Amino acid sequence: MSRVNRWLLPDGVKEVLPPEAARIESLRRTVVDLYQAWGYNLVMPPLIEYIDSLLIGTGDDLDLATFKVIDQKTGRTMGIRADITPQVARIDAHSIACDGINRLCYSNTVLHTSAANPLASRSPLQVGAELYGHAGIDSDLEVISLMIETLISVGIKHPITLDLGHVGIYRGLIEAIGVADDDEKELFNLLQSKAVADIDQLIAAMDLTDEAKIILSQLPRLYGETTVLPKAEEIFGNVSAQVSAAIRYLRELAEAVKARFPQVTLYIDLAELRGYEYHTGVVFAALTPAFGQAIANGGRYDDIGSVFGRARPATGFSADLKVLSELSEVPIKQADAILMPIEAELTPTQRQSLWEMQSQLRQQGECVLAQLSDSPVPANCARRLVWQDSVWTLVATP
């Protein structure tokens, strides 16, 4: 590598400079404080773990996104985390082993082998919250509410749309109708691309009754406002009890979210299967017109704890704080610094008094800059300390 491009960073990886770094750190503190105010305890999982622990039960997508390295001490394969959620599930299952409700939150960097989408970073600053030990609408409502409150707290004033779905509807239809495994895999892939014409063609070729084909073909067409839910109940109501229960659950959850956040637009998509390999119930994502991808997402994943030997109901969400910072309308606070004089020009008494004065000011949250010898005066100092009447006094910088 030539000297010219030694400083280049990998594609999708960037450094954060002042003042944006200060804004992100300020928002991180705001978010963590918010989570703790809701009763969520902060955890700090390790950056790297053995791969058989890090990826167990998570599916192929996370495996592909994870950087692998060899542990020089043991020869075992290790992974640099690409998602903190499985680590927190392991912590709940083994490190804490709480039998009741357990609320955990986190704020750490993750690393991806490739960007999740064209707008994404390969090194997101992932923040999120997970709730373990409760299976029901109350916990899903709490987590969704906290996700929306996260967006509000970081200063996102753009309109927010909440995309709601439930993987139990798809699973219930496939099981009740009896779709063959190969057909189901192809149908799943087509649903991800929303290719309705191709979906219709695939369903028409399946070995199913005409009634089953008509029912299944409605799934990718049921999206939009909450009015699609009564229609879904009418179409799928007699398919199975599992499907009917999932639709009712989604309707009740949507009504509860709308009551709390009337300013949020609800969008229902019954063919939304994000995280299908590990999600077991409701799935959700927050979107805004100012960004072309979801800015936060989550869902229920009751089965993931079973791979750690302790199955527990679980629901949670996560977001990239770097993305939230880009969308935030919270102004970046520029420090109004106080300038200290050059100590070499002071008497011993003045130096000692200055040391005590600047310590007090910093403890009060002030930014105090020491003027170094043979260096220009910093530009961001609106005030300075001067020796007047045998005491250090704050005055405006001329």
Rank of each mutant, 00 (worst) to 15 (best):
V4R: 13
V4T: 10
L8F: 14
L9K: 14
V16G: 01
L17M: 11
P19E: 08
I24F: 06
T30H: 10
Q36P: 04
Y40G: 07
P46R: 09
P46M: 09
T58C: 06
D60W: 01
D61A: 14
L62C: 08
L64Y: 11
T66K: 03
V69P: 00
I70C: 10
I70E: 10
K73G: 11
T74H: 07
R76F: 04
R76D: 02
G79T: 00
R81E: 02
R81W: 05
R81K: 12
I84N: 01
V88W: 03
V88S: 05
V88N: 03
R90L: 05
I91D: 01
D92H: 14
A97Q: 13
G100Q: 12
G100F: 05
I101N: 09
N102F: 08
L104C: 04
S107M: 11
L111P: 01
T113H: 06
A115N: 07
A116H: 12
A116V: 15
P118L: 09
P118G: 08
L119E: 12
R122N: 07
L125S: 02
Q126N: 08
G128K: 05
E130Q: 13
H134G: 00
A135D: 15
G136T: 11
D138F: 07
D140R: 04
S145R: 06
L146C: 13
M147I: 08
G155E: 12
K157L: 13
L162Y: 04
G165R: 01
H166T: 12
H166Y: 10
R171D: 04
R171V: 01
L173P: 06
I177S: 06
I177L: 15
G178Y: 11
D181L: 14
N189I: 03
A195G: 01
D198H: 02
D198N: 10
D207C: 07
D207F: 02
L222N: 06
Y223E: 08
E225S: 15
T226A: 15
K231G: 00
A232N: 05
E234Y: 07
N238F: 09
Q242D: 15
Q242V: 15
V243W: 02
V243G: 00
R248C: 12
Y249L: 10
L250P: 09
L253T: 04
A254H: 04
A256R: 13
K258L: 14
R260S: 11
F261K: 12
V264R: 11
L266A: 10
Y278D: 10
H279I: 01
H279L: 05
V283F: 01
F284W: 12
L287G: 01
A290N: 08
F291I: 03
G292C: 04
G292I: 03
G292Y: 00
A294E: 15
A296P: 05
A296L: 10
A296D: 07
R300I: 06
R300W: 04
Y301P: 07
D302R: 03
I304C: 00
V307N: 11
F308C: 05
A311Q: 15
A314K: 00
L321V: 05
L321S: 04
V323D: 00
S328R: 07
P331S: 11
P331F: 03
K333C: 05
Q334L: 12
L339Q: 11
I342H: 10
E343R: 13
A344D: 14
E345R: 14
W355M: 15
R362T: 09
R362W: 06
R362P: 02
R362K: 13
Q363P: 04
G365T: 11
C367Q: 12
R384N: 09
R384I: 08
S390M: 03
W392G: 09
V395N: 11
A396F: 05
A396I: 06
P398L: 08
